[in-house]
Design a protein around this nucleic acid. Sequence first.
DNA 1: GCTATTTGACCGCC
DNA 2: GGCGGTCAAATAGC
Length: 311
Amino acid sequence: MERKSNSGEWEKMKKEISELMTEGRDYAHELKSQLGSSSSQESREHLATKILESYHKSLTIMNHSGELDQVSPLPHGGGSPKSDDSDQDQIIKSSKKSMPRWTERVRITPGVEIDRTLDDGFSWRKYGQKDILGARFPRGYYRCTYRKSQGCEATKQVQRSNENHMLFEIIYRGIHSCSQAANVRSAIPVQVLEPNQTQEHENLEMLNESLDTGLHNYNHQEHLHQTLQYPLSSTPTLESNNMMLQLRDQNVDFFGSTSFSSDLGANVNYDFLPSHNVGSVTHSISNSPPESPFECFDPNNPFRGFGGFDS
DNA sequence: GCTATTTGACCGCC
DNA sequence: GGCGGTCAAATAGC
């Protein structure tokens, strides 16, 4: 695995991040100045979007550089085949542990209109659900739909937070080696999520929260879209995962069913119910276009199958 | 009939 | 032995 040890690249990276953060700060200042004015909602949303983009880009750069050092070699990552048959079983076993893994937390804000469902752009198939000790909600297990046909080993686990019902924790494992991998990135332009780097995630949450607060002050949740963007890929490969975290909470009953639609046309519905009072979680994936993204709430975008949980 | 989801059972790890 | 993760048969939806 290539490493970015080149100090020149680091300097360049730092400069880029600095510029992006400065840009974001400037946009934030501008947004702040508009909060009390009669500027249009479009203008404010545009500024909010620009801020998010700036933060997202800088985080992407940061994550990307960090990933290069963190990711362990993948036996079959990035589509490269397992080469040694005699060691195949061992490789498969070890790959389970060495697979890149990152966590994303998706927060859903009450009263916030969600234009799109959580969507990481990939198609997932639910293969299990389990009550976890100490967790109020069951954990849903998903694997790439193309696991069989293309040998894609990517999986994810979706679990609703105990403390905050509006928070979903998604654990991604493995890199998509399927045909979706190349498409997702371009299909999901802005809402690229990044891997779990706690500090970065917290920064994003803080940013989103602050934006929420500001926008709510003058917007009263009017067509407000909250987009949580987290780096999906913790690996430097092309198969970076993307997640779109725009949730419309109108029509979304978090203890009922929600759904997500992906830009790739996959709709996933997720039902999250407390394990003690729920019976089942439904997760479905279809190939129909996301006409009504929020009729289904899923995570990964992830969700009508998003980590549905009930037992 | 095909595909996806549900869910109890099984397996491996600690 | 308990727990998390996965398998696979049964079931449901299209």
